[in-house]
């Protein structure tokens, strides 16, 4: 029998409810999903079998972090940017078509009992990964501040979504000159001084990783980061998606799909 004792994984065909651009760069796909696959944790991902569409013939599945999961509505949401053949094929899916998904996969973000004041720092599509964390923080009655970074104000994403989830939102952009490491560091330091931060959450960029590692080490604040890597299987068997981590003075490899995608911020290494 299938070993359902711990975190079952499902391969499921879902119907596309909608798949529309939400701004100049990003699109939102909403799937009609059975509730048993929606027992998700913020930070987890699904492995999507992007369709064959005309000349677009992606072969391997594409991992995509969950933007929203709504068991009552039976909906699974992904926010994405067209970055290659897989996401281009995904964008060609129309309402009523099917998408084969495998998941939920990986280990998500923790909110420990004594982490009352949370700060999220993310840029671009990384905000999608962190949106479900804001929802969980709201459910747990934690205070969450989100620093949302983007190239320009027009492509800032999910601001209203974060606000609706009770988060305080601070926006920074390249075009306004507010998103550089120095400016960000000052902003975060000021926030730590004024209100305090119990835990940081981020994803993606090496630049944010290095900056947050420094700030967190300086103040002894814990942090978590969601990482990416090219994947094949997505469930732990192939060992393709390893990244390096610093743990107890040693460099170790862990799989982004299985041990991650969320890791201890201080152990993570850029790539």
């Amino acid at each position: 029998m299938t070993d359902m004792t711990l975190n079952p994984i499902f391969e499921t065909i879902c119907r596309v409810k909608s798949n529309e651009p939400i701004n100049r760069e990003y699109r939102l796909i909403v799937l009609d999903a059975p509730s048993h696959i929606l027992k998700c944790e913020p930070g987890q991902f699904f492995h999507l079998l992007c369709p064959t569409k005309g000349d677009l013939r992606p072969y391997l599945r594409r991992p995509m972090s969950i933007y929203g999961f709504y068991p009552e509505a039976g909906e699974l949401h992904f926010l994405y940017k067209i970055a290659g053949e897989g996401t281009a094929a995904l964008s060609a899916l129309e309402a009523g078509e099917n998408l084969n998904v495998v998941g939920p996969l990986g280990h998500g973000f923790d909110i420990q009992d004594d982490w009352q004041k949370l700060m999220v720092v993310a840029r671009g599509v990384g905000l999608a990964t962190l949106a479900p964390l804001a929802q969980k923080a709201q459910q747990m009655g934690r205070k969450l501040t989100a620093i949302c970074s983007a190239r320009s104000p027009e492509v800032l994403m999910s601001i209203d979504h974060f606000k609706a989830l009770g988060a305080e939102v601070i926006t920074v952009t390249d075009s306004e000159g507010t998103s550089g490491v120095e400016a960000l560091e000052q902003l975060i330091e000021a926030h730590i001084q004024a209100e305090g931060v119990d835990a940081f959450y981020t994803c993606g960029s090496n630049r944010l990783l290095t900056m947050l590692q420094t700030i967190c080490a300086r103040h002894g604040i814990p942090g978590q980061i969601a990482l990416e890597q090219q994947m094949a299987c997505g469930v732990g068997m192939c060992q393709c998606c390893v990244r390096s981590f610093r743990r107890k003075d040693k460099i170790i490899h862990e799989r982004v799909c299985k041990e991650g995608p969320v890791f201890n911020l201080q152990e993570a290494m850029g790539c």
């Binding site: 013939r57 998606c241 390893v242």
Partner: peptide
């Protein structure tokens, strides 16, 4: 094991 990337896709197949 080997350095990453450890996998890439080619038309309808993969390399590892």
């Amino acid at each position: 094991g080997n350095p990453t990337p450890r996998v890439c896709e080619v038309r309808g197949s993969m390399l590892n």
